[in-house]
């Protein structure tokens, strides 16, 4: 990592600490912001967060590893989450997954080579009455069919 890059990360985290405070309770929102912007929380960012909140880096790492939506490895620009809970499952979720996997050429849990998409399963996203449900980033799509899923992907791709 270049020094300038490091400095930029540090500055960014210092600003987040100004916004959310340096108490440990600020850990979640700070990490969420970093995650949102960089799509992951880098080794360096973890250590800087630890330093500024006066906790151990391993505690930050441990925290990240606990929560599904935080990660330490870079993910795709768009994260596709498909609900795998039973109701969506019975509404033909697997056909949607298969279609997306074919379209993107990746399996669930993987990221496309161009880093545009990451495909994941999610546990119940609270759309069981309109399943199968799928989320792309913070937007939720319901009653998804294989055709609809592909249309959504091309829309997202832009």
């Amino acid at each position: 990592m270049l020094v300038e890059e490091k400095n930029a990360v540090t500055e960014e985290i210092e600003n987040l600490v100004k916004t959310y405070g340096s108490e440990r309770s600020a850990l979640m929102p700070i990490l969420q912001e970093i995650q949102k912007k960089h799509r992951h929380i880098s080794d360096y960012a973890q250590q800087e967060v630890a330093r500024l909140l006066d906790i151990h880096p391993v505690e930050v790492f441990s925290f990240i590893s606990f929560y599904s939506f935080l990660n330490t490895e870079p993910k795709g620009k768009n994260i596709i989450r498909i609900c795998r809970t039973i109701v969506c499952d019975t509404k033909n979720k697997s056909a949607v997954v298969a279609a997306i996997e074919r379209e993107l050429g990746i399996k669930v849990g993987e990221t496309t080579k161009d880093k545009k998409f990451t495909l994941e399963y999610a546990n119940c996203i609270g759309m069981c009455d309109q399943g199968p449900a799928m989320a792309v980033n913070d937007r939720v799509y319901t009653k998804v069919t294989p055709e609809k899923a592909i249309a959504i992907l091309s829309e997202v791709r832009g």
Binding site: D43, Q46, I55, H56, P57, V58, E59, F61, S62, S65, F66, T72
Partner: peptide, 20 residues
């Protein structure tokens, strides 16, 4: 207060490990 070891992961993946 050295802070090398913590629980990493969740559920059945939980294990004790170090930073990264």
């Amino acid at each position: 207060e050295v802070g090398v070891l913590e629980a990493i992961g969740r559920g059945d993946h939980t294990h004790i490990s170090t930073f990264l």
